[in-house]
């Protein structure tokens, strides 16, 4: 693979070098950094979409995670807006249910993509349901 990679890389690199040489600016390396960043970003995004296309349920999990982040953000912005943490236990309960549910979802997602040794996916889902129920109970208990 590598020689091919080198061969294919060099014209690109040449192009990059030539583009650098022609540019006259105070920071000659800034172009490279921003370009590397956008390259990395695009590569990860493509990898992500490929992964999600393979399994529908990952989309469900990811959308649920975004929702949890939004709810946590709304609660925090309310607290910041009134500048008062008055029922602090209530704020913590609301925040922890979002964070804990997020963590459990991530753990389920991880096991769906590449299951752990000795734990089947069904069992992972069963544990996820049990842990979520306990989390909900704790949250409702803590908000009193």
């Amino acid at each position: 693979m590598s020689p091919v990679g080198v061969v294919t890389m060099s014209p690109k690199r040449k192009k990059a070098v030539s583009s650098v040489q022609t540019r006259s600016g105070p920071f000659p390396w800034s172009g490279t950094i921003s370009r590397d960043f956008t390259d990395a970003f695009n590569v990860s995004l493509k990898a992500y979409w490929d992964q999600v296309k393979k399994d529908n349920r990952l989309k469900l999990i990811d959308i649920f995670c975004v929702f949890l982040v939004v709810v946590a953000f709304v609660q925090t912005s309310f607290m910041v807006l009134i500048r008062d943490t008055f029922p602090f236990n209530a704020f913590l309960a609301g925040f922890i249910v979002c964070v804990g549910q997020f963590v459990l979802l991530m753990s389920l997602r991880l096991q769906l993509v590449s299951p752990f040794d000795g734990i089947s996916k069904n069992r992972a889902f069963g544990e996820f349901v049990l842990a979520s129920l306990i989390l909900h109970f704790i949250s409702l208990h803590f908000i009193n």
Partner: peptide, 9 residues
């Protein structure tokens, strides 16, 4: 105040 957090849960 706790209404917001309760609705979140």
């Amino acid at each position: 105040n706790a209404g917001v957090y309760l609705s979140g849960i």
